[in-house]
Nucleic acid binder design. Structure first.
Length: 320
DNA sequence: CGCATTTGACCAGCGC
DNA sequence: GCGCTGGTCAAATGCG
């Protein structure tokens, strides 16, 4: 949807022929949207980290790093680091999808301020508190059930950075190795498909994700992650990655370099920096999905939930 | 029985 | 101020 001010750039065979990027500001935030059209991509051409180092922000590298094959799957991704740009990015993703088979599009929305991203990283001041504290605990008097939300009033609402992926998938629930519990579902305006809300089931982990199907392209699923996992991937994945990935796939990258977001993350200076004061980065993605791209190719149902962990800080683009 | 999902209600923020 | 909408809660229900 060009009316968002986004343009396209094309990427062929490992070289960017044309990169176009535009941005918009939404209440202090700036959204970035990158679109990549590719006909042939060599996943081994460049690592994700390489891309990060070589360019300010190349989402095309995402696809490369992840080994995405535009011919087998389409992935749109977007990041946001502030407060409420999600809906827009959803629109972008959905719009961009229209008839673009064989393309890999990435959308990036980021906050103009990295500090906001990092600061807001772990604690979702608005919701995690709500979530973290047992609603009933403050018991309150009257509406002890739902009235406690109001108590967070005075505080400045600050959302955690979000990272959204738009994927071609038949299933709504994409597997990313973590366990999620659905805690809500809402009808999406202008869309016959509902949006589902999930929360990481790991205690103290405030990561949430939203999953909705694109109205314009029902075969497209938009997954938005919010927050950072402060724990390693569950070792016992029930009906999750463990069940979907052959044992051979759950092994360290044979190439010694990242081919999956988790690994990529570990090589990102910014990511390490960000993780330093919150979770053991080294263990965060200990469970390897390095051959993840294979899975992507085979199942066309990639879920890069963990990307949200790195992109917000790593891909942040600071406005001039 | 424990955990996950469903679903209606509630709340906050925003636009008019 | 009011209505709309997104997001969340939590009781009820389902499932293994």
């Amino acid at each position: 949807m060009s009316d968002h001010g986004f343009r396209d750039f094309y990427y062929h065979g490992g070289a960017f022929n044309n990169i176009d990027h535009d941005q918009q500001s939404y209440g202090g935030e700036t959204d970035h949207m990158y679109r990549v059209s590719s006909s042939s991509i060599d996943p081994s051409y460049m690592s994700f980290t390489d891309c990060l180092h070589s360019t300010s922000m190349d989402y095309g590298s995402l696809e490369k790093a992840f080994g995405l094959s535009p011919t087998s799957s389409e992935v749109f991704s977007s990041v946001e680091g502030g407060n409420r740009t999600m809906m827009k990015q959803h629109h972008v993703g959905a719009d961009e999808l229209g008839g673009n088979t064989g393309e890999v599009t990435a959308t990036l929305n980021s906050s103009v301020s990295s500090s906001s991203t990092e600061a807001g990283c772990e604690e979702d001041s608005d919701k995690s508190k709500k979530d973290g504290q047992p609603k009933g605990s403050d018991d309150g008097g009257e509406s002890s059930k739902k009235g406690n939300k109001a108590k967070m009033k005075g505080e400045k609402k600050q959302r955690e950075p979000r990272f959204a992926f738009v994927t071609k998938s038949e299933v709504d629930q994409l597997e990313d190795g973590y366990r999620w519990r659905k805690y809500g579902q809402k009808a999406v305006k202008n869309s016959p498909y509902p949006r589902s809300y999930y929360r990481c089931t790991t205690q103290k982990c405030t990561v949430k994700k939203r999953v909705e199907r694109s109205f314009q392209d029902p075969s497209t699923v938009i997954t938005t992650y919010e927050g950072q996992h402060n724990h390693p991937l569950p070792t016992t994945l029930r009906g999750s990655a463990a069940g979907l990935f052959p044992p051979s796939m759950l092994t360290p990258s044979p190439l010694g370099r990242p081919s999956f977001p988790h690994e990529l993350l570990m090589q990102m200076p910014n990511y390490h920096h960000q993780m330093n004061n919150q979770a053991p980065a080294g263990s965060m993605f200990a469970e390897n999905f390095s051959p993840f791209h294979q899975y992507v190719h085979q199942h066309q149902v990639p879920d890069y939930g963990l990307l949200q962990d790195m992109v917000p800080s790593t891909f942040l683009k600071h406005e001039p």
